[in-house]
């Protein structure tokens, strides 16, 4: 699958911002209080307009920064306990790589389960909106978008414009999310990567009875004790989870090109099992799948930055 370059039509002009700054100065607003505004003077330098999208997941926080609409840097940090602090550390990292200051992002948008903790974000969007947005940019043909993360999974049906038509979410049960596969690979004592790979070599399909992650762990242990080949156990685990995820996908509806993002999309064993269970000819794994939500948030941030610049121009024009 080819990697599509995200191109944005952000009509930002540095002059508009200059004018807004001027208008504010004329209105007696001192320049320092203007710092809080996300419309920064960064574009005055030769850095281009830089925005960031933060996806605060249950396990990892992913950050995508765009420079003039193109992905400039990707950063992942552990979400940890203090989500805002983790996001700040991640954003500082991104800023350092871009050689700009923390305050130099023209706009920051956040999504993900912990998005509300990010006080410094100028805009919050739901995971569904972010995923739809990101997927439309990565694969314009995508009509069914699946995102399987560590603790959550969702399926979104979108139209040709990337607009959300319907969606289904599982955020209640670990058995339908990455945590399930992770727990099982731990029980088998193989790395997640290997767990996915060996699953493809399996020739035998054995059903798993347990639906719950906690119970499935004991089931995997008893399968190990009954000398079941690890590759067959891995396949059984992926098939079981694919069954649950595909039920959720069907609730949202399957149509057109089906794409998958989220960290679990790296798991080849799961992707194969999901493709088989869904009965689709092709299940496209999005490039850098774990950054799907962050990319969507970054694209939304770029829009907002554009709007603000436009607004600034209007204000200045009226003044």
């Amino acid at each position: 699958m080819c990697r599509r370059v995200v191109v944005l039509r952000v009509e930002v002009c540095a002059r508009a911002r200059e004018r807004r700054g001027l208008a504010l100065a004329e209105a007696g607003v001192p320049a320092t209080t203007y710092r809080g505004n996300r419309v920064r003077r960064s574009s005055d330098k030769e850095t281009g307009m830089i925005v960031a999208g933060i996806d605060v997941g249950s396990k990892n926080t992913k950050i995508v920064a765009l420079r003039d609409g193109e992905v400039a840097v990707r950063v992942t940090v552990s979400s940890g306990f203090d989500q805002e602090e983790s996001a700040r550390v991640g954003l500082e990292k991104a800023a350092a790589e871009l050689d700009i200051g923390f305050d130099d992002f023209a706009f920051v948008a956040a999504t993900g389960v912990g998005r509300k903790a990010i006080a410094f974000a100028g805009h919050l969007l739901t995971e569904v909106a972010a995923d739809a947005r990101g997927a439309a940019a990565l694969d314009p043909e995508a009509r069914t978008v699946i995102d399987v993360g560590a603790d959550e999974a969702r399926a979104i049906r979108v139209d040709e414009g990337g607009k959300v038509l319907d969606f289904a979410v599982n955020e209640k049960c670990a058995a339908g999310a990455g945590a399930f596969v992770e727990a099982m690979s731990r029980a088998l004592e193989v790395s997640l990567k290997e767990f996915g790979e060996i699953s493809l070599e399996s020739t035998e399909s054995i059903p798993m009875n347990a639906q719950c992650t906690v119970f499935a762990e004991s089931e995997v242990v008893s399968l190990i004790h009954s000398n079941t080949a690890p590759k067959d156990i891995a396949r059984a685990v992926h098939d079981a989870m694919a069954g649950r995820v595909s039920a959720m996908v069907r609730r949202a509806g399957v149509q057109g090109a089906v794409v998958i993002g989220g960290g679990v999309a790296h798991n080849v064993g799961f992707v194969q099992a999901l493709k088989d269970t869904l009965g689709v000819a092709e299940l496209r794994v999005l490039p850098q799948p774990e950054y799907l939500g962050a990319l969507g948030a970054a694209l939304a941030a770029a829009d907002k930055a554009g709007d603000k610049a436009g607004e600034g121009a209007r204000v200045a024009g009226e003044a």
Partner: peptide, 19 residues
Amino acid sequence: VSNVCTVFAKSEATALLKA
């Protein structure tokens, strides 16, 4: 904590301890 999933309840519980 979460009353739906033991796995999530456990991670919530450890997060609360850290808090």
